[in-house]
Lab assay of single mutants.
Amino acid sequence: MQIFVKGLTGKTTTLEVEPSDTIENVKAKIQDKTGLPPDQQRLIFAGKQLEDGRTLSDYNIQKESTLHIVWR
């Protein structure tokens, strides 16, 4: 499925993911596209910070959802 990651600059990155992907895995995909290391990424969805060990489905993140990224 496709999801979007929007940064503070307003730039949006598209990712191809599975609902079973962990947040850690998603951060690795973001690094592949942007070069930003996972330890500098904070992902937010529906006002919650996403924890590395959880999956996208744990947070009810579905296709075409938009996550927000904040740099540490």
Score class of each variant (00 low, 15 high):
residue 20 S to G: 11
residue 6 K to L: 14
residue 23 I to L: 05
residue 61 I to A: 01
residue 8 L to W: 12
residue 26 V to C: 03
residue 44 I to M: 14
residue 20 S to I: 06
residue 52 D to V: 05
residue 54 R to Q: 08
residue 55 T to S: 07
residue 51 E to H: 08
residue 29 K to E: 03
residue 28 A to Y: 12
residue 36 L to P: 03
residue 40 Q to E: 10
residue 66 T to H: 15
residue 16 E to M: 13
residue 4 F to W: 09
residue 24 E to R: 12
residue 44 I to H: 10
residue 58 D to I: 02
residue 41 Q to N: 06
residue 72 R to A: 15
residue 18 E to M: 13
residue 10 G to R: 02
residue 59 Y to D: 01
residue 18 E to T: 13
residue 15 L to M: 05
residue 11 K to F: 14
residue 20 S to W: 14
residue 19 P to V: 07
residue 2 Q to G: 04
residue 48 K to D: 06
residue 56 L to N: 00
residue 68 H to D: 10
residue 69 I to C: 05
residue 5 V to R: 01
residue 55 T to W: 03
residue 40 Q to I: 08
residue 43 L to T: 01
residue 63 K to E: 12
residue 22 T to C: 03
residue 6 K to C: 06
residue 68 H to W: 10
residue 64 E to C: 07
residue 35 G to N: 05
residue 67 L to G: 01
residue 11 K to A: 13
residue 24 E to L: 13
residue 46 A to N: 14
residue 23 I to A: 02
residue 16 E to C: 07
residue 1 M to I: 10
residue 18 E to Y: 13
residue 19 P to F: 06
residue 69 I to S: 03
residue 8 L to A: 10
residue 12 T to C: 07
residue 72 R to N: 15
residue 53 G to V: 07
residue 43 L to S: 00
residue 7 G to S: 11
residue 21 D to V: 03
residue 14 T to S: 10
residue 52 D to N: 12
residue 52 D to H: 06
residue 6 K to F: 09
residue 44 I to Y: 14
residue 43 L to A: 02
residue 33 K to A: 15
residue 59 Y to C: 02
residue 20 S to D: 12
residue 2 Q to I: 15
residue 71 W to Y: 09
residue 46 A to K: 14
residue 20 S to T: 12
residue 54 R to G: 05
residue 70 V to S: 09
residue 64 E to W: 12
residue 56 L to G: 00
residue 35 G to C: 04
residue 31 Q to V: 04
residue 64 E to N: 12
residue 46 A to P: 01
residue 64 E to K: 07
residue 8 L to Y: 14
residue 67 L to S: 00
residue 19 P to C: 05
residue 1 M to A: 02
residue 32 D to S: 12
residue 71 W to K: 09
residue 16 E to Q: 13
residue 18 E to I: 11
residue 14 T to L: 13
residue 13 T to N: 06
residue 50 L to V: 03
residue 55 T to A: 05
residue 65 S to P: 01
residue 13 T to A: 08
residue 22 T to Q: 04
residue 27 K to F: 04
residue 53 G to T: 10
residue 21 D to F: 07
residue 71 W to Q: 13
residue 53 G to C: 05
residue 58 D to P: 00
residue 35 G to W: 03
residue 57 S to M: 10
residue 65 S to H: 07
residue 67 L to E: 00
residue 66 T to L: 12
residue 11 K to V: 14
residue 11 K to S: 10
residue 41 Q to L: 14
residue 21 D to A: 07
residue 31 Q to H: 15
residue 17 V to I: 04
residue 18 E to C: 07
residue 45 F to H: 07
residue 63 K to S: 14
residue 54 R to S: 06
residue 47 G to L: 04
residue 29 K to C: 03
residue 23 I to T: 04
residue 58 D to M: 05
residue 7 G to A: 10
residue 60 N to L: 07
residue 55 T to L: 07
residue 22 T to A: 04
residue 21 D to K: 01
residue 34 T to G: 04
residue 68 H to K: 08
residue 16 E to V: 09
residue 64 E to V: 03
residue 42 R to C: 09
residue 46 A to S: 10
residue 51 E to D: 07
residue 34 T to H: 07
residue 38 P to R: 14
residue 66 T to D: 03
residue 14 T to R: 10
residue 46 A to Y: 07
residue 18 E to W: 12
residue 30 I to H: 03
residue 64 E to R: 09
residue 10 G to V: 08
residue 20 S to H: 10
residue 65 S to N: 11
residue 62 Q to F: 09
residue 15 L to V: 08
residue 33 K to Y: 10
residue 44 I to D: 04
residue 14 T to F: 09
residue 63 K to P: 14
residue 34 T to L: 14
residue 39 D to V: 08
residue 40 Q to F: 11
residue 19 P to M: 08
residue 65 S to F: 07
residue 15 L to S: 00
residue 25 N to S: 15
residue 36 L to M: 15
residue 62 Q to W: 08
residue 34 T to M: 11
residue 37 P to Q: 09
residue 24 E to S: 12
residue 69 I to D: 04
residue 48 K to R: 11
residue 62 Q to S: 11
residue 26 V to Y: 00
residue 11 K to M: 14
residue 71 W to I: 15
residue 71 W to N: 11
residue 34 T to I: 12
residue 35 G to S: 04
residue 68 H to L: 13
residue 69 I to V: 13
residue 28 A to N: 10
residue 38 P to W: 13
residue 5 V to F: 06
residue 36 L to Q: 05
residue 14 T to V: 13
residue 5 V to S: 02
residue 29 K to I: 07
residue 32 D to C: 06
residue 66 T to M: 09
residue 21 D to S: 07
residue 25 N to H: 10
residue 27 K to I: 04
residue 14 T to K: 08
residue 47 G to C: 04
residue 54 R to E: 04
residue 26 V to I: 13
residue 61 I to V: 09
residue 37 P to D: 09
residue 7 G to N: 11
residue 12 T to I: 14
residue 21 D to C: 04
residue 26 V to H: 00
residue 4 F to G: 02
residue 28 A to S: 10
residue 15 L to E: 01
residue 15 L to N: 01
residue 67 L to D: 00
residue 39 D to Y: 12
residue 7 G to C: 07
residue 60 N to A: 09
residue 18 E to P: 03
residue 67 L to M: 05
residue 13 T to C: 06
residue 57 S to N: 11
residue 66 T to W: 09
residue 27 K to N: 02
residue 63 K to M: 11
residue 56 L to S: 00
residue 53 G to Q: 10
residue 43 L to R: 00
residue 60 N to D: 09
residue 10 G to M: 08
residue 53 G to I: 06
residue 14 T to Q: 09
residue 55 T to F: 06
residue 54 R to W: 08
residue 36 L to E: 04
residue 68 H to E: 14
residue 60 N to C: 05
residue 35 G to K: 05
